[in-house]
Simulated assay, not measured.
Amino acid sequence: MDAVLFPGARRSVGLAYVLWALFGLFGLHRLYLGRNASAAGMAAITILSVPLIWSGLGLLGFVATGTWALADALLIPSMAREVNEAIPAAA
């Protein structure tokens, strides 16, 4: 995503919310905001939950990532601000 391809680029809160709305359970909004490890964790839990959905473990995984994604809806502005403040100002 943008965080990997353009490490010095400012992050858009709007784009983060679009990624959250479309791919929130996979953590793409976190990847965009530079939270690579937690993005990988969300994606892994979601992907592993698909074949386990009928056993109940998959449902638990979806509840976990769903709750995590809903919490991120409130955290996206502060995550974007943190990433943008860490970018050095252009000289």
Rank of each mutant, 00 (worst) to 15 (best):
80 A>F: 06
9 A>L: 10
74 L>C: 14
17 Y>Q: 02
81 R>S: 13
42 M>G: 04
74 L>R: 15
31 L>M: 10
52 L>A: 13
53 I>C: 11
51 P>Q: 09
31 L>G: 02
50 V>F: 15
40 A>V: 13
41 G>T: 07
61 G>A: 05
28 L>D: 04
1 M>W: 03
43 A>Y: 07
37 A>T: 13
76 I>L: 15
56 G>N: 02
31 L>A: 07
6 F>K: 10
2 D>M: 08
44 A>T: 15
49 S>C: 07
87 I>H: 13
70 L>C: 12
52 L>S: 06
12 S>F: 04
26 F>W: 10
64 A>Y: 06
5 L>Q: 08
26 F>S: 03
89 A>C: 09
61 G>L: 00
67 T>N: 07
79 M>I: 13
30 R>M: 04
59 L>Q: 03
37 A>H: 04
72 D>Y: 10
44 A>E: 08
52 L>I: 04
88 P>F: 11
31 L>I: 03
55 S>C: 03
60 L>F: 12
20 W>C: 01
17 Y>C: 03
74 L>S: 11
49 S>L: 05
56 G>A: 01
82 E>F: 08
62 F>K: 03
56 G>K: 03
42 M>R: 04
10 R>A: 12
33 L>F: 02
76 I>F: 05
38 S>E: 11
40 A>Q: 08
27 G>V: 04
41 G>W: 11
44 A>R: 05
41 G>R: 07
82 E>V: 07
53 I>F: 14
37 A>P: 00
28 L>V: 00
36 N>W: 12
20 W>N: 00
60 L>D: 00
6 F>S: 12
72 D>F: 07
54 W>G: 06
66 G>D: 08
7 P>Q: 08
89 A>R: 10
21 A>W: 06
18 V>P: 00
87 I>V: 15
27 G>R: 00
87 I>A: 10
24 G>A: 04
24 G>M: 06
55 S>P: 01
40 A>E: 01
35 R>H: 12
55 S>M: 06
8 G>K: 13
45 I>E: 03
80 A>D: 08
20 W>T: 01
51 P>A: 09
40 A>G: 14
8 G>V: 05
34 G>C: 07
82 E>L: 13
33 L>G: 01
10 R>E: 11
14 G>H: 02
77 P>W: 07
9 A>R: 12
40 A>I: 11
84 N>S: 12
82 E>P: 04
32 Y>I: 05
